[in-house]
Design a protein around this nucleic acid. Structure first.
Lengths: 213, 213
DNA sequence: CGGTAATCTAGAACAAGTTTCAGAACTGCT
DNA sequence: AGCAGTTCTGAAACTTGTTCTAGATTACCG
């Protein structure tokens, strides 16, 4: 693969924080993300080619790289974008189950069904996410926080989560990502993913506050 | 990255099965795997460069590709190799804990400490494993079976595992891989990984046969 | 041993991610 | 409007994974 060496020397806090981004810049960024998602939907990770993303977004290659310092950055940002949509969508129809564990399982299965509709896009995003090295940590962390938020929302807790519950949520996230990967690479069926999600979600109820070890 | 497109058309059951492999071929294969591990130990995934592997193994580039059809194949095979060692090592000192869950946690923490001694190698192998696409499924599956075997060994069961236990083992594997990734990319501490492993291992005891739901 | 097919070598060639650079276009500021 | 600094463009160059080719070598068979 290309130079995925990455050890960003020049500080380039281009996107997330520092400069407020003019309107045209915001538009460019949005166009790029849209193209990225479109290409990913077609053919997954491999189909997102930087030259094509640039051309199809009406932007020079160098500019694309200024906005997203690598293909993985781009795809992780794309995932952030999609996750935000997902979060809003899910928030509108809260899960119907009673137990927190069952609620989380139900929510994740909804998300999973959404991903099934765009398996290539899912492939691109998840592969990028797990392939990301340290230089993408901040962005990957954002994705992780979004995922955590979705799960915590689904739990429908009254008070704040206990440390044990947070651990369970972490493990659920691990399982979620890894199960997706096995599904995407054809080593696990949809049914198998469902079982894994339901299995791990038992941890939630197991760690409900006011319970024996 | 290069053509990780992969959709192997020409059947080339080179390694795993068909032809018995002459002695020199076996030696070549072993030399390649050794080089791969050596380079990976130095600088992780990026440091394993196909040209260098070939040269350093005293083999032509084309030959390397005949033995391992892609960089990911090579690294997954390297992982198979290392896992086999690990399995033998672990088998020699069975875990001291009583509960199956605790035994698994103890075993995985031993494996984790071994990985900590070669973080770059761990990086290369785990990244390859999760980045692998369908064309590597058989090899990834082998790795998965090896991992499962290690965990089942650690459980020290009398009879065969129940389906529920097998599900738990699957989830543990998911967590194991994903936790490793977060650690390798610097987003989780060693302590955090430990907690995650211990958390997920509770599922084992939860699914012990002869137990209420 | 001689012949033939499979394997191996050296090296060029190709693909896609990434970097670089000179100049054009745009921004903010006075 | 005019200028200094940043951003963007277009195009070439560079890197590394992967493929291809022509010619040696080797392995196997009668």
């Amino acid at each position: 693969m290309g130079n995925m060496t990455t050890e960003s020397k020049a500080a380039r806090p281009t996107l997330p924080a520092s400069p407020p981004l003019t309107e045209r810049q915001e538009a460019r960024r949005r166009r790029i993300l849209h193209t990225s998602a479109k290409l990913a939907s077609r053919g997954g990770f491999d189909a997102v080619q930087m030259r094509e993303v640039a051309e199809s977004s009406g932007v020079a290659l160098g500019t694309l790289y200024r906005y997203f310092p690598s293909k993985v950055h781009l795809l992780v940002a794309t995932m952030q974008d999609q996750l935000q949509h997902m979060h809003e969508t899910l928030r509108k129809r809260p899960p119907s189950e009673q137990d927190p564990g069952a609620r989380v399982a139900q929510t994740l299965m909804r998300a999973f069904r959404a991903l099934q509709r765009e398996p290539h896009l899912a492939d691109a995003m998840v592969r990028a996410l797990t392939f990301a090295d340290r230089s993408v940590s901040p962005e990957v962390d954002t994705v992780s926080r979004l995922t955590t938020a979705i799960i915590l929302d689904a739990m429908g807790l009254d008070g704040p989560a206990t440390p044990e519950q947070l651990s369970a949520v972490r493990v659920i996230e691990h399982t979620w990502h890894s199960a997706l990967i096995t599904w995407l690479s054809g080593r696990a069926s949809i049914a198998q993913v469902k079982i894994d999600i339901e299995t791990v979600c038992r941890l939630i109820d197991l760690t409900a506050p006011g319970r024996e070890r």
